[in-house]
Simulated scan of single mutants.
Amino acid sequence: MMDLAALRSLEAVQQHGSVVAAAEALGFTPSAVSQQIKRLERQSGVTLLERVGRGVILSGPGRILVTEGARIAADLERLETDLHAHAGAVAGEITLVGFSTAMRGLIGPAVAQVAAAHPALRVRLAELEPWDAVEQVATGQADVALVHRWGDVVLEIPDHLDRRVVHHDEAEVIVHEDHPLAGRGRVTPHDLVAERWIATPAGTICRQWLSRMYAGTGGLPRIEHTAMEFASHLRLVSAGLGIALVPRLGRGPLPANTRAVRVHDPVPSRETLAVWRHSLGRSPAVTTLVDVLEQAGSVTPSGARTPA
């Protein structure tokens, strides 16, 4: 019988272009991935990888196996899901991945609630950026992802994944109490053109939104400092080193010497989506978890208010 875990390793080699990259994506060692693929070759009796220079590509039979194996794996996952749905059992183990502020503001409280109500279900957590989270769910490395989508910043979600909006959020500009904008009720990007920003690194969705927010101002945000965590942004603002655009979800109390100022035209808003494979759509564990995440999102302060 074909080994499904080994099939996922072969699929990862095709997707990432090498055994080393596949191993890194799956969290295995290259040796483990190589051994899994060799086991598949023994089971199938065909060569699945061909060496090209210093790298490898899938052979013809290897490509067929990945295509058909993905379909078979989805069918088996759907069958297991249907059995659990028939039994009504919220049990087993699922992996939930999500971004940092969701970990603090949504995932922690929701998973604690699920664990208390369903002790036979184990939820494993990992923090990932949205693009990586979608990829892990799409390739079967995780079961559910919480991702955020800002305005018109594209976040591609494959067709075989289902999704549900579980929370609406708004970001505000955080400034030092001595800043000239600290007493303002709201500002526009035009008011922020000359400011020094503390921002997330280039390539992150939050950084992309900050740049798009400047459309029509004739310039781009002046990034003075970069830090991945919004908690770090708040401390840097408190030290007087710049201003920051920080979402309300998972933000916690502001430092005493800082102020939050709303932004409009446009309002920097984002939505949090739960994403899972269609083959898991009837899983009692997945539906229960997503329902609880949506309930938590409905009562979590978002700051998504009607502009004055």
Rank of each mutant, 00 (worst) to 15 (best):
V52S: 05
P268H: 11
Q15H: 13
R51Y: 06
L49H: 07
V19G: 00
R39T: 10
A117Q: 15
H179A: 11
A304Q: 11
D143K: 01
E80I: 00
L7N: 00
S100P: 04
P201K: 05
A87Y: 05
V292P: 02
R63K: 12
R122P: 02
G27T: 02
V153F: 03
R8L: 12
L26P: 00
V237I: 09
R63I: 04
I198T: 05
A296R: 11
T204S: 15
Q136P: 00
E224M: 06
F99G: 08
P301I: 07
Q43C: 00
L76T: 02
A25Y: 05
V123C: 04
D178K: 12
L161K: 03
E24K: 12
V13W: 05
R149W: 03
W276L: 07
V134L: 02
E24S: 13
V114S: 08
D143F: 02
T188F: 01
T288M: 02
V275H: 10
L293F: 12
E271L: 01
R122F: 08
Q43V: 08
S9D: 10
R42H: 11
A304C: 12
A199C: 10
R51A: 11
E68M: 09
A32P: 00
H264W: 15
P268R: 08
I57F: 01
P247K: 02
A199I: 07
Q43E: 15
T81G: 15
V111S: 10
A227E: 05
P221Q: 00
P130H: 01
A5E: 13
T101H: 13
E127T: 15
I205W: 01
G92H: 06
V134Y: 02
V246W: 02
